[in-house]
């Protein structure tokens, strides 16, 4: 059974000059134990799509289902990790991690052990009492990750989580996210990653949804059947990145309405 089904979703925003279409007819599934990446050029609606999936915003048309139920309000089964970390500067690391649990109405005696557990699994032990200003970008994003995982979401939504980090730090955190997702004793069941970095998507994901320029449409769904850890310098890896780059570049004339492959045509074997 699909965890999440995105069905024929359109999103447009009203402006003074009429409505602007952000995405059209987006359809895909997130399966159990999936690591799914969404890539596409800036402005294709990737981040908006994550917001729609979590229930922070409503589609203009189409629907989003979580375990066959329509997502009509903010889902407690999903948690988001942000590019900008989105931590509260006046709260300590522990308090930031506890924040989501408090919002869900957990009692204080249950919050503490839960916070400690997720501080430990993300490697934040030793920084419980630190404030975000004392932390490097990598440590801040670990706090973002711990806060999201502490609510034990079925799906972890990640919006460009590594793009504000220096390259070495990003390399380390990608490895840790993969480690957490592969650990059956820990949430989440599935990860949905939005990235503009095609190599990153292919390194991490089982499947990559390729979106076109605005209005975003699904150009292809590429299954990345390479064993992990993936060697970015291998020919097979290069073939995947080359294919996705080609799709996105060919997808350019989509504003003119076009000869693009229809939804799913370029699906990999």
């Amino acid at each position: 059974m699909a965890l999440i089904r995105v069905e024929h979703v359109d999103k447009s925003f009203p402006t003074r000059h009429g409505s602007i279409s952000i995405m059209q007819d987006i359809t895909f599934d997130v399966k159990d134990s999936d690591f799914l990446a969404i890539v596409g050029p800036s402005g294709c609606g990737k981040s908006t799509l994550l917001r729609l999936i979590q229930g922070l915003d409503r589609p203009t048309a189409g629907q989003i289902l979580f375990r066959d139920q329509p997502v009509n309000s903010v889902s407690k089964q999903m948690a988001m990790v942000f590019q900008s970390f989105a931590l509260f500067p006046w709260l300590t690391v522990s308090q930031n991690v506890a924040f989501g649990l408090e919002a869900l109405g957990w009692s204080a005696d249950r919050i503490h052990p839960q916070v400690e557990r997720y501080i430990e699994v993300t490697g934040l032990d030793g920084f419980q009492e630190a404030y975000p200003r004392e932390l490097s970008g990598g440590m801040r994003q670990r706090v973002g990750l711990a806060r999201a995982l502490a609510v034990e979401p079925a799906v972890l939504l990640m919006d460009e989580p590594f793009s504000a980090l220096d390259p070495l730090t990003a390399e380390s955190l990608r490895d840790e996210v993969l480690q957490l997702w592969q650990d059956p004793s820990l949430p989440p069941e599935a990860v949905l990653l939005v990235s503009h970095n095609i190599e990153e998507a292919i390194e991490l994901a089982d499947r990559v949804i390729v979106l076109s320029r605005r209005p975003g449409r699904v150009l292809a769904e590429v299954t990345v059947d390479l064993p992990r850890p993936r060697d970015r310098k291998s020919t097979a890896f290069y073939e995947f990145t080359d294919r996705v780059y080609s799709l996105i570049t060919e997808g350019r004339p989509s504003l003119a309405g076009t000869e693009l492959p229809a939804n799913g045509d370029a699906r990999a074997g």
């Binding site: 390259p167 730090t169 380390s172 490895d175 850890p229 970015r232």
Partner: peptide, 29 residues
């Protein structure tokens, strides 16, 4: 930072555990 050092080690792992330092740097531009 520890995180940066670990990033470098993860990168080296991707190169089967041994690589020219110049090549590692080049990998991350």
């Amino acid at each position: 930072s520890p995180t940066e050092m670990m990033g470098l080690l993860v990168l080296l792992k991707g190169h089967k555990g041994s690589e020219d330092v110049a090549r590692l740097a080049d990998d991350l531009d």
